[in-house]
Simulated assay, not measured.
Amino acid sequence: MPVMLAVAAPAWGQAATADLPDPASITAPDLSGGRDPAVVRDGVKYYYFWRADTSYAQAYADFADCARFLPMAQGNAPLLPMFIAWRGAAEDRDDTPAATHQYGLVGDLIGAMIMGSASQLAAQARLHACLAPLGYQRFPLPKATWQTIPADASAATIALRAKIASGPRPDAEPLEEVQ
């Protein structure tokens, strides 16, 4: 059995890297402006993740793993605290998204007006809860730039966030973590 695992490991690693999007084909937004006092003050809401000495492949794997929490940020989830049990390997977890509310078109429009960017903020908070223990730091970002980074769990968004997280050191100070 150990010999079979040793032989299968290189093939598994090659398949995982073959599926990675090419970071050269990804255009990241301009992340400057993180030293502006107004941007730093709003950094609690508008930020991106970065970690020193992180490869694009590792960042992509981390964001892809944490993306399983993002569908939970739909509906009224931004208003409710949430606990997700960490049970075993990724393939053993129940990542079924919570049921969405069916209020119809008018209800969805009213909800969108009331909630604003709360769903996107909740998704970012869930990413933070997953990425902070892995050593990722948060850096402030102007709101206009933050809005250009999608809050979904698509492969393109994961690739963009991974490129940012594994890129050059930001020209700003990291945000303080709440203890």
Results as ranks from 00 to 15, higher is better:
91 E>C: 14
1 M>K: 15
126 R>C: 02
42 D>P: 08
61 A>R: 10
5 L>H: 03
73 A>W: 02
97 P>L: 07
74 Q>A: 07
45 K>I: 10
39 V>T: 12
60 Y>S: 05
89 A>E: 15
161 R>L: 09
125 A>I: 04
33 G>T: 06
122 A>D: 07
121 L>R: 04
30 D>W: 06
23 P>M: 04
91 E>T: 14
103 Y>K: 15
109 L>D: 11
33 G>F: 00
87 R>S: 13
173 E>H: 02
48 Y>A: 00
8 A>K: 06
30 D>P: 10
145 T>H: 00
3 V>Q: 13
35 R>Q: 14
124 Q>M: 12
10 P>W: 02
27 T>L: 09
51 R>C: 04
152 D>L: 01
166 S>T: 02
33 G>A: 02
69 F>L: 15
53 D>F: 03
125 A>T: 07
13 G>P: 00
164 I>W: 01
17 T>M: 09
151 A>Q: 01
42 D>V: 10
151 A>P: 04
149 I>A: 01
44 V>N: 05
21 P>I: 03
97 P>I: 07
169 R>T: 15
175 L>I: 06
63 F>E: 00
48 Y>R: 04
80 L>Q: 13
49 F>K: 05
137 Q>Y: 00
87 R>Y: 05
8 A>F: 05
46 Y>N: 11
149 I>D: 02
155 A>R: 11
45 K>M: 12
41 R>S: 14
46 Y>G: 03
15 A>K: 14
51 R>E: 09
82 M>N: 10
111 G>N: 11
62 D>S: 06
173 E>F: 02
4 M>D: 14
23 P>D: 01
109 L>G: 12
150 P>D: 06
166 S>C: 07
6 A>V: 12
15 A>I: 15
157 T>D: 03
119 S>F: 07
62 D>R: 01
171 D>N: 09
119 S>A: 14
172 A>R: 02
50 W>I: 03
44 V>Y: 03
127 L>P: 01
96 T>C: 09
95 D>W: 12
64 A>I: 05
157 T>P: 09
43 G>V: 00
178 V>S: 08
97 P>F: 00
42 D>S: 13
71 P>F: 05
170 P>L: 05
116 G>Y: 01
21 P>F: 00
49 F>H: 08
27 T>P: 11
30 D>S: 08
171 D>Q: 11
150 P>L: 02
105 L>A: 15
161 R>I: 07
107 G>I: 09
5 L>Q: 11
123 A>D: 07
18 A>V: 09
12 W>H: 11
31 L>H: 06
120 Q>T: 13
116 G>M: 11
112 A>P: 15
94 D>K: 09
161 R>Y: 01
60 Y>K: 14
84 I>G: 03
176 E>G: 14
155 A>S: 06
52 A>H: 11
179 Q>V: 15
43 G>E: 00
50 W>M: 07
66 C>V: 04
140 P>L: 03
102 Q>G: 11
128 H>F: 03
168 P>F: 04
35 R>D: 12
58 Q>N: 13
109 L>P: 12
109 L>M: 13
59 A>Q: 04
3 V>Y: 06
91 E>S: 12
108 D>T: 13
117 S>Q: 14
114 I>D: 08
